[in-house]
Design a protein around this nucleic acid. Structure first.
Lengths: 267, 267
DNA sequence: AAACATAAAATTGTCGACAACATGGTTTTA
DNA sequence: TAAAACCATGTTGTCGACAATTTTATGTTT
């Protein structure tokens, strides 16, 4: 089949230069990285689909040079795979990958919690306690929805990571691993984590940090993440990522079904 | 100053295409990545020096396109920093960086040891025990030099990492972190690690893995790495990386003093 | 002489075109 | 008929040139 299907695409999202549209960064590879990351996470570029450089270049109104640099970065983020003379594909999410990912996150965020206990400053501590207060209200609010819980959860973890004061660790966790986590969240709509339990765990963790108990903080963080992981894996066993129809992309063509982010609702 | 100083450079290392020289990979960015990595580690590109795209392109007989892709990868490896419209610099090694790095490595390799205890296969286990036997002979051999101990050490850690069977963890540790470690080793010539002690620690660790005691394996690995780290930091306090003359590159020009790998001996 | 504005040079960012390779289909051959 | 060789097409890899930006040099003013 020919691929003049560019009419199907979101009418040329146009990251291009001085046209002063919604693009925020300064260099094309940076912009492209953000947009492509979002496209993959939202499912606009389906998992497993082929990535055509020419097609993407036309779509974003850029040449293939900057696009390729963005693809290199995407590869190091683990969101796509590339092989010489063949091209790039969006990764496929297998169940093991989720497990592998959380094992790494457990080790890294555990260390972050330990370091946070050593290095956190009083104002950061205060901000975290404030955040937990807000979180507590959200938990008791029947109006609150899932995404509100999640963003608070996210923020809490992020602040602890930053409190570790280890720049390389922070970069690893925020730039790299969390891109993958966001991918999980968007692809796997059903996550049955209990907000109240999460809050409870967060409280104990924060107390440990406040008391400068690094060992305990690391232990609690690891348990917290490990628990979330097994919950997620259990969900996957039911939903079965590999057989989930909307997560399977035919291995041949790419021309994506656009704006399919709000699909696969919980039947 | 003009930069016709290309005569000073190692006469055009020539990664270029079909000329069938010592290059092994298939695509230019891959080759370039390997060569540049080596150049940084050996000190051919001094720490903190500016990286000129034009100069490097001429030197390796490639155009700037593939070179830039390699630079993007080098940036994600943490070996260079890049800022828009200004260019790339080789990183500067500050004492904190070493600490930050080892904190991450402790977390990650600790997890690797734990997973290895769960997932290692009998043949891998046997190979590791064989390796320790060789190592033991090396330790008792007065002829053996530092680099022999190191390569064995290196191999041991690598095998355990691979035995974890977590591909992402393996990639992170081998591709990314170990590039940095090799940089440390080459830049900081004086490392007073005791081979006998290291061997002893390795034995205990391997026994823990063999006995499938994940908790213990992780603990021992973390202690092992932590000890190496503080030893290295102590060395740094004496040698003082920041004020070490041959490690300081003037912030202006780059034209490197070539083949300066065997400098900065312990006066 | 110091500080500012301006011009020139050098470097990075981006583009379009060509070369090398892989893929799918067709023809040839056993 | 099936397998192998071949060809056509599309895609990725690489290059050289131009545009945009930063840096250096120059000159003017106080």
């Amino acid at each position: 089949m020919t691929l003049h299907s560019s009419t199907e695409l979101t009418s040329t999202t146009s990251v291009a230069k001085n046209t002063e549209n919604h693009s925020t960064s300064r260099t094309l590879p940076e912009d492209l990285l953000i947009h492509l990351q979002q496209a993959i996470i939202s499912g606009e570029l389906p998992l497993g689909s082929k990535i055509s450089e020419a097609e993407l270049a036309k779509r974003y109104q850029v040449s293939r040079g900057p696009l390729r640099e963005a693809l290199v970065k995407l590869e190091t983020l683990g969101l796509i795979t590339r092989s010489a003379n063949v091209g790039a594909r969006v990764i496929q999410l297998k169940q093991e990958d989720v497990i592998y990912h959380f094992q790494i996150r457990e080790a890294l965020e555990g260390m972050a919690a330990r370091l946070a206990a050593e290095n956190i400053e009083s104002q950061e501590l205060q901000a975290l306690y404030d955040l937990l207060d807000v979180h507590e209200q959200t938990v008791n609010d029947p109006e609150a929805n899932q995404s509100m819980h999640q963003s608070g959860n996210f923020d809490f973890h992020l602040r602890i990571i930053k409190a570790s004061k280890n720049p390389q660790l922070i970069s690893m966790l925020t730039d790299k691993l969390y891109a993958m986590i966001r991918l999980f969240r968007h692809q796997i709509s059903t996550h049955r984590t209990d907000p109240k339990q999460a809050l409870q765990e967060h409280k104990m963790l924060l107390d440990a940090i406040a008391n400068r108990e690094g060992d305990l903080a690391e232990l609690l963080m690891r348990r917290h993440i490990s628990r979330a992981a097994s919950l997620l894996v259990m969900t996957l066993k039911d939903t079965s990522v590999n057989s989930h129809p909307s997560l399977q992309a035919d291995r041949q063509d790419s021309h994506q079904s656009i704006h399919s982010s709000n699909k696969h609702k919980k039947g």
